Simulated assay, not measured.
Amino acid sequence: MQSYNFSAGPAVMPSEVLAQIQADLAQSQKGHMSILEISHRSLTFDKIVDQAKDRLRELMNLPQDYEVLFVQGGGSLQFEMVPLNFANQKHQIAVLDSGNFAHKAAQAAQAEGVSAKIVASSRDEKYRYLPQLPADFSAPAYDYLHITTNNTIEGTCYHQSNLPQTTGPLVADMSSNILAEPYDVRNFDLIFAGAQKNLGPAGVTVVIVKKSWLAQQNVTKVGPMMRYQSYLDKNSMYNTPPVFNIYALNLVLGWVQDQGGVPAMYAANQKKAQLLYDYLDQSDFYHPLVTGADRSLTNVVFSTGNDQLDQTIAQQAQEYGLYNLAGHRSVGGFRASLYNAQPLAAVTALIDYLDKAQKEHQNER
């Protein structure tokens, strides 16, 4: 029986990439030793880092005035690192509170002594829609505006078409939908993305930052490990980087290229998401928690309306090879994560199972 992983992260990876990793764990064809053993000072790893950067540049159409960095600490470290480096003029940032991770970013900035003003929020409505910038928003009052493009937990997304319009610097947490749909990088001054959702295993974070903004970073009151300049000066190797994770990320980037790049991923993701949303929209047993243009392509959240029944159905799904369907504890229900590596067959298998579960539990709601 085929099994499918719907986890929000660490998430499904391409089978071709997993096969290559398995081979390289014994002995890399390029390094004559396990990928786990190679030095970060080796020519082999230099080539991996450079190739990964080049692939990202191609896949995201990065202009030459943007730098690519690989940083440890996950997206959560970026919640602190960005304000430490860039909230150094107004000492105040604006946050669109669209979900759990945006809220955490505001809290982290506050902990670093930076005023983080939530200029709009959908928290009172359980984050089931996207907050928009108020008409009186004044970008010059803030060092930058922070957004989360895709809200992994709540299933909403700022697509390119509905990005907030600001005249000031824009910082985006793209951890769960980087490379899943097209964005014009020129809209952003800094983008970061933890790898564990759409880029590979946990342990490395991609940072894309505009050079002109990088020149404004605070390098006098920030320790070297928290300075972007340190990673830039040492080609992301200020200290020992997560060698294996960058290697795996590079393989995933190569796989995305082989599939046809971001346009192909976007088309496939639209097809997967539309198939599932169409099913949920016509169902009288399940209901999606997000409607309209705010819906995420990568994290689909839904429920029967009965918490205990949701838990039962999610648990029983494992008998059919469908894993990690339970929603986040703050939302409940179900969450089907449809990242780039998730095949269309996973969605059809999920819909077949949901039909079976409905027939079995129809009278229990």
Rank of each mutant, 00 (worst) to 15 (best):
S42E: 13
I351D: 09
I21Y: 03
L133T: 03
Q316K: 15
A273V: 05
G31K: 03
Y183E: 04
W255D: 05
V82Q: 03
Q29T: 12
S42N: 11
Q89M: 12
A341C: 01
A193I: 02
K117F: 09
F101K: 10
M226S: 08
E67C: 01
K234M: 09
K197I: 13
G168L: 09
H328V: 02
I48E: 05
E80F: 10
R335H: 09
S7K: 01
E181R: 02
Y158F: 13
L179S: 02
L62I: 00
V207A: 01
G9F: 01
Y4M: 05
M13H: 03
G113Q: 11
A345C: 08
A26Q: 15
G113Y: 12
V290K: 14
V300W: 05
V219F: 07
E154S: 01
M237A: 14
Q362D: 12
P10Q: 09
R295K: 15
F188N: 01
M265F: 06
F79K: 13
N88W: 07
G261Q: 01
T298C: 08
K47T: 13
L276G: 02
T312F: 10
F302C: 03
R186H: 04
R329S: 15
D124A: 06
S212N: 04
V12K: 11
S236G: 11
A172S: 03
I21C: 09
L59F: 00
N150L: 11
